[in-house]
Structure formats: structure tokens, C-alpha cells
Design a protein around this nucleic acid. Structure first.
Lengths: 226, 226
DNA sequence: TCGCCCCGGATTTTCGAAAATCCACGAATA
DNA sequence: TATTCGTGGATTTTCGAAAATCCGGGGCGA
């Protein structure tokens, strides 16, 4: 008697969260930009309440900041934060991968093989390739890294790594060309091989190098934006 | 012309956050208990909107959980989470303290001496001591641990450690007697001494032991609640 | 001229009620 | 008897507007 619309099973707040996060991650809302409720209500098509809840969640994840009585803004990006982010991702994901390789069972191995295959079969995103492929690659990339650490046995560690990954995403997308002349595919393959070979220290080391190189490339882009 | 009440500079949502967190940490709201808005609105004296925002923040910090259309509940406690929490605190705070000891400047040293002094001068909380002292000790305890890692130079790491500390707080308070027959004051002093002596590995090790022993004591209490 | 206070518009924050959704209970059917 | 299907009430979620707050500019006094 009360469903003249869609079979909504999600809340509007969740939809607003996805929408706004997408706008921020893709850079349509610039770092530091003030987020006014009127604008956001126009973007999503809803009242202020769910938008407010979405912003509360985004703030908890570090995408936005809140000053009392002054509203929300897009969190600013800085080289300092990029370095800090990288250092902590190396610490957390390095440890998580080590645990995964040590404790991961057969099911984890299977999922890892699948995730790597999905990532490897997609041609590396280039500037001249339409964004559809790009988005797909991003998804598989995220899934691969998530699968890598999914066997570590620590829900908290997995959650923390996920949040840091999301925060780093904004920096990653800043650079138009994801690869800075390096062999990203090869790096992923090396990590994958070490993990399957159950060489925990090597896998962790490779992952840390991988993140450091990504950060270095981004930092170069940061200083001299070509 | 419009301040017949208090000089409110904070938002009601922030007040609600503090109030509800206090209720949860002290155990007045039990783990797993459903949190109904009607009840919370009675506790805080405000409308549903700020309460909702407070719950959103609490959920981000792990105090509560949210199921769409089924509302919020107090997050449950479990031995598994205690162990997970402990493992990650050892990893994160251990590293943070190591960095602090290595990079901390004179200002950090000064703050650390002060924080330890404040903690040490308060008599160790016992069951027969009124809760006022207890609360004060908790505050100084938190401040001491926060100061320990405050020189690490990584805002992200500090933030993560803070969140884990808060989550662990609920477990710590479960046990009526904070000390399980061990020398907590001595443990703090040992960490303090190693930090001041600039022995980073030793300080980190002692801190990790400290957390492990706390967790072990709590786990014993968990299994056989006397 | 400079600094301080106060006002008006823009924006956030909060309210109280309406709408949507879930849950438990009981009736009807096989 | 077991299972499915509504139905009513409790609860969450959302709305639209009112209240509170902040920011910038103009006027007043030193």
C-alpha cells in the first residue's frame, strides 16, 4: 500500500554517501572546497537529513572535514599527508600481507588467483583509453589488494587497510597517467608470485616497495604537474 | 538578541556524542543492546537529528553498529575482538612509540615527564575507592599513553592509535579491579624510563608487553567473571 | 585613518511531524 | 500440523521549515 516508487531497500543516506564520495574521488569537488547543503541536495535529490548523515560518514573516513557551525569541506591534499599515508600503509598492509601468507588457507589462495587473473586480463589503463576501462581496472585493482590481505585473520586490520586505501585513492587519481614509466603489472605479478610461493617476508617487502614507488611517482607529479 | 540560554559554541550533536559514548563506556548501555531514538532523546534533551549525527560518529569509531532500517545497537564485546584489538595496538602503538623515541624533541620529553608525573602521583585506583579518583586516573592514563606516541610525527598513526585506545577502553572498564595482581605502576615507569633513555626498541617492547598483559588479565576476567 | 561594534544575508543546525520500513502475531490454506 | 500470507503497531528514516550561528560590510567613536 506504500510503494508507489522503487523497491528501496537501501537508505537515502547510503546513496548520498556513494554519490558524494564519487564526486570527491573523481575530483569534481576540489580539495578544500566548501560543501554547501543546498548544492549537495541538488546533486542527490533529497532533503538535508540524509545528506548530513552521509557527510558524517565521509568525515569519519577522512574525505571531508567538519568545523562546528561552519559546515563541511573537502579534505585538502598535501605531500605531507601522502607521505604519512604511504608510511602507514606500508606498516599496516605489509604486516597484513605477511599474516595472510602465513595463515591463508586454500580458499584464500583460490580467491587470490582469481583476483589476480581478473586484474591482469584488463589492459593497463592509459590516457587515451576511455574511462570505462579505467573504472573497471580501478575496481579490480582494489579487489586484488583487498584479497591479498583478506587471509590475515584480523578484521580490524582489514578495516584499517581499507580506509587507508580509500584515502590514498584520491592521490592516485590525481595523476592522469597511473604509471610513471614503471611496470605496475610486473609489480603486481611479483607480489602475487611471492604470496603463492608462501614467502611471507618477500611478499611483504615487495608490497611495501610497490606502495613506495607509487607514492614517489605521485610526489613527482605533485611537484611538477605536467 | 537571541541567547536567552547558554553561550553555546558547541553543537548539540557533539554533546550527544559525549553523553552517549559515556553511557556506553561505563556500561550503562549493555553490549548488543538496541539503542532506540526515543530513549536517547530522553537522555540527551534534544530532537532526533543531533542524536542521529552522534550515532553516526560513534559507529565510525566502533562503539555502535548500524543496520539499515533496523537502527543502531551497542557494539558487542568478544574475546576475539579483544585479541584482535590487542594485536593491532601492539603493532601500531609499538611502531608509534619507536618513532617517538627516535624523533621526539625536547618539547616532547618535557610533556612526557609531566604526563608521567601526573599519572604517578594519583594513587592506583582500587575497588574501594570512589569513582571520582578512578575517572581522574583514567584521564591521566589516557594522556600518558597519548603523550608517549605524540612525538612520532605521523598524524594518521596518532589518530589510529587513539581510536583503538577508545575501543579498548570498553574492555578495560569491564573488569572492576584494573590490576590483576600485577604492577601496573611499575610497567608504566619502565616504559617511561626506556623512552627517556632513548632506547626505542626496549620502550616499544615494554609497551607491547604492557598491552599483552592487560589483555591477558581481561581475558581471564572474561572467562571466569568472579 | 584606524579599530570596534552592530546589523543583514547566507548557511548551518535543530525541530516536530509525516512517510517508509520492519517485526511479530495471528489467520487462512494445504 | 506446518507454512504462507497479510495486518497492526513500533521504530527508523526523511522531510520542510524554524531557530541559531557565522561572515562580511557599513557606521560610529577615538
Amino acid at each position: 500500500m506504500a510503494d508507489e516508487r522503487r523497491p528501496t531497500t537501501r537508505t537515502l543516506a547510503s546513496e548520498a554517501y556513494d554519490l558524494i564520495q564519487e564526486e570527491i574521488r573523481t575530483g569534481r569537488y576540489r580539495p578544500g572546497e566548501r560543501l554547501r547543503f543546498a548544492t549537495l541536495q541538488a546533486l542527490c535529490v533529497m532533503s538535508v537529513t540524509p545528506v548530513r548523515e552521509a557527510l558524517a560518514r565521509l568525515t569519519a573516513e577522512g574525505f571531508t572535514t567538519l568545523d562546528d557551525h561552519r559546515g563541511y569541506s573537502v579534505a585538502v591534499l598535501s605531500i605531507e599527508e601522502l607521505r604519512d599515508l604511504t608510511a602507514n600503509r606500508k606498516l599496516l598492509e605489509g604486516e597484513a600481507l605477511r599474516l595472510s601468507v602465513e595463515h591463508g588457507d586454500a580458499d584464500w589462495e583460490g580467491r587470490l588467483v582469481a583476483a589476480h587473473h581478473m586484474l591482469a586480463r584488463i589492459p593497463q589503463a592509459r590516457d587515451d583509453i576511455p574511462s570505462a576501462l579505467r573504472v573497471e581496472w580501478e575496481d579490480k585493482h582494489r579487489a586484488f589488494h583487498a584479497t591479498l590481505i583478506s587471509g590475515c585473520g584480523s578484521p580490524i586490520l582489514i578495516e584499517l587497510c581499507g580506509k587507508l586505501f580509500s584515502r590514498a585513492d584520491r592521490y592516485r587519481r590525481m595523476s592522469a597517467s597511473l604509471t610513471g614509466g614503471r611496470d605496475v603489472v610486473g609489480e603486481h605479478r611479483a607480489i602475487f608470485d611471492a604470496a603463492l610461493a608462501r614467502d611471507a617476508p618477500a611478499a611483504a617487502d615487495l608490497l611495501r616497495q610497490h606502495y613506495q614507488q607509487t607514492a614517489d611517482a605521485l610526489e613527482r607529479f605533485f611537484v611538477e604537474p605536467s
